[in-house]
Nucleic acid binder design. Structure first.
Lengths: 309, 309
DNA sequence: GTCAACTATTTGTCCAGGACAATATGACTA
DNA sequence: TAGTCATATTGTCCTGGACAAATAGTTGAC
């Protein structure tokens, strides 16, 4: 069924493969040179044409790399050995929360209605802040892990994200504050498309009496600086998902810190910052939501709770 | 004020410039080779380090290219000649709708509250479909043009998008249908982050009695195919903004068409498809919203209004 | 046995410069 | 004016070499 349309497939050029897999052209070429895989066909002009199978295998390898495997080993294996690695082998290391498992099951089976009802119920029961910290964040982590174990695909992950996004946007629409401090600009760097982290942070900030300015994802650094100035914010808060390469994230943070006025704080949150080892001067790393509260408290003590702008 | 933090700027590596400007590394290098601009400094290792000024100039050049200028000409000019080109010179060619001008002014001056009130008012007055077609689409076009004329920045554009997104999501949350036909999957290809187009299409489809499945932006082709199968949709609808290179869009559509079952229709909408000259077999190009209605009607006639799945 | 320091390997990204196809421009003709 | 063809422009692809950052493996001290 899935291969029915692969009749006269001429193959995908390298740019398409980069777009689909997220592996750079440089990486694709150097893998071919070093490990002999993938070895795509060539067109009349000598340009690479990858088969659908190769693209699927590359996506699989990328997933396994996120689980800690190294490309040198993976690329030496054949398809069956890869498949053996790719099965959901180990049990989940964290506490096996039955409710989370329950939800994960719903995500896997695309049971949108049940998922949405349950979200609303838990939100009402726990309140927004606890809902974010105790339910959303762990569940998103679980979904990410499940994806890396090949238990569900990007499709399910997207659908799940859309439900949460709808929930947050409707909830937040009814409680937009007129004022508050600190004023915090929320966005991501170019290349980071995940908005969910921003919406969760926005929720927490509103509840805590701060004034978030949601700018949406993917703002160039120059424009972040200008926005911070125009909106007179006290802090810029960026969000990084697992997908963002830690080395790129660190570079981006350095670039931005260099251009931002010293009085404007720079906070970086999300799963993606956990990979950053060395602290960056003038940047506050916020890997967990709890650390965000710490950041807020610290700012309020240091400034007396008043915006400097 | 804007240059205050540029004290010890060591410059940005080529990867950062690619991320910030959207110009590929290949393009940056070939411009340097051919036109002698930009000529970045080099670090101890011989790697390029671009100054902030160079990055700003590159962004300016990219904007001017979107207005129809050619790089060969632009890169031969010096900074002052570029600035002369970059002023908002010509008047807008279309009908100078005073209301649109009014709104554009609000966008430029970050008058969020007034903007939001006016959106709600017009939505109530015209109804959702007319609001999308008569107000939203032209306004988005106008904002895009204003951006290309350097009258406003990405920051303002992001803020504007966030307001519209909030409006659509709250409106749509209250009218999600239980059924309808055709069933249409809504998403974009990797690299296209704009969600607004999808939300507008979703609105129109709901109003017209169809059943949209919103998947959010940036789904890999493989996953689009799987989603179409699982959700048993009759059509996949992709959205392309101006930013998406027409050649990339066409290639992506060909890639997807090749993998999708023949019975599943493929519609491609948005400003970005206007750049596609040659029709692509099996792909329905929908440059204007009116064409979407045509697509719907055609599908209903051809199939008798019933899903084939 | 554990931890730290050091060395070796791995791996992604950068570089140069050549080539070519797709697009846009401009000249010429009907 | 509109269509056709030659020419110029321009982005992307190619090869193969190099190197720095990160990771793995080893050794030695406590």
């Amino acid at each position: 069924m899935t291969t029915e349309a692969t009749h006269n497939a001429p193959g995908l050029p390298i740019a398409s493969v980069e777009r689909e897999t997220g592996l750079s052209k440089d990486t694709l070429r150097v893998w071919e040179r070093r490990y002999g895989f993938p070895t795509p066909d060539r067109d009349a002009n000598g340009e690479r044409l990858y088969t659908q199978l190769q693209v699927r295998q590359l996506a699989q390898i990328k997933r396994l790399m996120d689980r800690g495997h190294r490309p040198g080993r993976l690329l030496a294996l054949d398809a069956s050995a890869l498949a053996a690695l790719d099965t959901p082998d180990e049990a989940n290391p964290g506490a096996p929360d039955p409710q989370l498992d329950d939800w994960l099951e719903r995500v896997k089976s695309h049971d949108s209605d049940a998922l949405e009802r349950q979200f609303h119920r838990e939100l009402a029961r726990r309140g927004l802040a606890r809902f974010v910290v105790d339910i959303c964040a762990p569940l998103i982590t679980r979904v990410g892990e499940a994806w890396s174990r090949n238990e569900l695909g990007i499709f399910e992950e997207h659908l799940f994200s859309q439900h949460l996004e709808k929930l947050f946007r409707t909830t937040l629409a009814n409680m937009a504050p007129q004022s508050g401090s600190p004023r915090v600009l929320l966005t991501t760097l170019s290349g980071e498309e995940h908005t969910l982290g921003l919406l969760m942070v926005e929720s927490l900030l509103v509840v805590e009496g701060a004034y978030p300015v949601l700018l949406g994802p993917q703002t160039p650094i120059n424009e972040i600086v200008r926005a911070a100035q125009v909106k007179a914010v006290d802090a810029v808060c960026l969000s990084f998902s697992t997908a963002y390469a830690p080395t790129q994230a660190a570079q981006g943070l350095r670039d931005l810190r260099q251009m931002l006025p010293a009085r404007t704080e720079l906070w970086a949150g999300g799963y993606g910052v956990k990979g950053i080892r060395k602290p960056i001067e003038g940047v506050c790393l916020v890997p967990e939501f709890q650390d965000l509260f710490d950041c807020l408290v610290r700012w309020r003590i240091e400034t007396g709770g008043k915006s400097a702008n």
